[in-house]
Nucleic acid binder design. Sequence first.
DNA 1: TTGAAAGCGCTAACAA
DNA 2: TTGTTAGCGCTTTCAA
Lengths: 340, 340
Amino acid sequence: MSDLEERPDRPRVVTIRDVAAASGVSIGTVSKVLNGRGKLRAETRARVSAVADRLGFRPNPLAQGLLAGRTHTIALIACDGFSRFSVPVMLGVEDFLAPEEISMFTCDTRDDPIRERHHVERLLARRVEGIVTTGRRAETRHGLGDLPVPVVHTVSRSAGPGDFSVVPDDRGGGALAVRHLLAAGRSRIGHITGPRRFLAAGQRAAGLTGALAEAGLRPVAEPLFGEWSEEWGRQAAGILLRARPDVDAVVCGSDQIARGVAEAMGEHGRKVPDDVALIGFENWEPMALGARPPLTSVDLNLTEIGRTAARYLLDAIGGAPPQGGVLTVPATLVVRESTR
Amino acid sequence: MSDLEERPDRPRVVTIRDVAAASGVSIGTVSKVLNGRGKLRAETRARVSAVADRLGFRPNPLAQGLLAGRTHTIALIACDGFSRFSVPVMLGVEDFLAPEEISMFTCDTRDDPIRERHHVERLLARRVEGIVTTGRRAETRHGLGDLPVPVVHTVSRSAGPGDFSVVPDDRGGGALAVRHLLAAGRSRIGHITGPRRFLAAGQRAAGLTGALAEAGLRPVAEPLFGEWSEEWGRQAAGILLRARPDVDAVVCGSDQIARGVAEAMGEHGRKVPDDVALIGFENWEPMALGARPPLTSVDLNLTEIGRTAARYLLDAIGGAPPQGGVLTVPATLVVRESTR
DNA sequence: TTGAAAGCGCTAACAA
DNA sequence: TTGTTAGCGCTTTCAA
C-alpha cells in the first residue's frame, strides 16, 4: 500500500494574501470584505468574495485569536472515562456551543489528579476561554484551584470556595417518584439504593422520605443501602419482601438496581406493576427499556445540565460577574409500564 | 449571589515580553532559554527560567502555531451521540495523543450530514492537523471528501476511495466464540443476532459459520436475524428452542440479545451454562456483568482501535505516505460464567 | 473607496 | 553570549 512516488501535495492552505493577490487589492481590503467592515464599493466586495470562495479561503483562527486575544474554544474535562454521566453533559454543552462557533476540547482524567493537573495546564496554555468539568453521579469534588478562566462544574459539585456547580436534583427526583406512586394509590413504599457514602444515594433517599412525610407517611422499611448493581437489587428485594411482604411499591436508586428488583419480584411471585410498582433512577435507556416490564425512571436531565453549564460559562466569559454556589436542574419522571 | 463590586481582575496572561522585562534580557534570549536553543550562560538560563516560573509564564501556542504552521490539535468526529461505541475509541485516541502533547477537539454530528459538513469546515478553519471519525458498529459510511489533512475512520469503514479505516474484527470475533464453545465440548450451536442489514451482524454470523465449517459442523439452525434488543433475544430463544430443543450453545450478536436469551432459557427450564452455554458480543460490561450468570462476551477492543487510529494519524501528519484500505483489529474473548 | 503599516506573541536568522 | 529584526496571518487604525 505504500508507494515510492512523491506524496501528492495536499492543497496548500490559502491565506488572505493569496486572495488579495488574486483579486488585485490589498490585504486590508480583503479583510474588510470578509468582515463586512469599512466602506467599499459593492463591486469590489462582490469580486473579492467571489475570489475568496473560489480559492476556498478560510481565515486562520490562530491569527485572528492572536490578535483579538480570543480563541473561541473551551474545554470539557471528564474524570470517569466519558461515562454515561459525562456523555449527556457533553452533548448539552455542545448543543449550546455549536451555534456560537465555539469548539470544545475534551479530555479525561481517569480520576487521576496528576493527569487532571496536566490537562488543565495544557488547556490553559492553549488559551481555552473556559472549562467545564463533569462528574460521576452527585458527589463532591475538589476545585481546580484559582484559574485565569471561568470554570463550571457539573454533576459533581465542587468543594472549592466560590466555585460554581450545576448539579442534578436527586432529592427532587426522589420526591417526584414518591408523588407519582402516591397518585397511583400506592402507600407502602420501600427504597433500595446504592452505597450510603454516595451523596446521590443519601439525597435520593431524603427526597423520598420527605415526600412521604408530606403525605403523613413513612417508608415501609428503612432504606436499604448497598451497591449500584443488579445483583444488589435482587438481594435487597428478597430482604425487603421478607421484612414487609405487603410492600406495594419500590423506588430504586438506579435502573440497574431496579432491574434486579424486577427480576427478584417475579421470582417471589410478585407481578410488576400489579402487585409492586417499580421506579428506577437515571433513566438509562438500555437498562430501563430492556427490563420486563420497561421501567418508569427518574431522568436527571443531564443534557440540560450541560446546556445550563455552557450558558453560564459563556456569560462568565462574556464578563458576567462571577457566580458561586450550586445550581440545581430539576429532574423529570419518565413513566413506563412498571408503574402503569 | 451577584455583587456590585468590580469583578476581581483575573490574573492577566503573562507574555514572553513580561518575562524579558522582569529578568532584564531581550525576548530573543527568553525564547532561547525556554526552548533550550542557542548558547547562553548557565546563570542566565537559570535566572530567566526562575522568572518565567515565578510569573507563571506559558507560551502562547497560537503564536507558536502561527509561526510554525502547526497547531498540535486533531479532531474526533462522532456521529452517534458519543455512544458506547465511540467512547472507547475516544479514550484510545486520547491515550495515544496525550503524551504527544496533542489536544483533541470533539464534536458529534447526530448522524446529520449537514452538521458533519459544518463541523468539518470549522475544524479545518481551526487548522486541526488530522481527523478521526468514529462510527456505530461496523457499517459503511461515506467519506469526508478530499481534505487537506489526513483522516482515519474507525469502527465504520469509509466508502471513500483511498480512505483509511480501522475496524473491529467481527468475523474473527464470531469465530473466536465458536472455537471456545467447541473446545468446551459444545457442538449444537445456534446464533441469534441483530438486523440483517447490519454489516456487523452479517460478519459475526459469517465468522461463526466459518469456524463451524472448519470443524466439519453447521449451525444447529439458520442464524436468527432480528433486533439488537433484549426483547428479541427472549423471543428468538423461544423460536430456537422450539426448532432445536437439543441446542447446547448460543452465540448472540450482542450482550443485550444474550441477556434476553439467558432470561428466556431460564423460563424454558434450561440452565446456563449447564444445558446451554451463552456468548454475547461487544463485552458491554454493565450488561454482561449484570446478567445471570455473567456473560462470556467477545470484546472488539475498541480502545485499541482508537490507539491504532491515533498512531496512523500521527504518522500521516508526520508525512508518512498515505494509506488506503481497511485495517482490522483482532477481537478477544472475555470468559465468564455463561460458558464455564 | 482603497492602501500601507503597525502589532498580536512567538521563533529563528543574523548582528553585535 | 546576547540583542535585534523579520515575519507567521490577520485586523485595525490612519493616510492617501
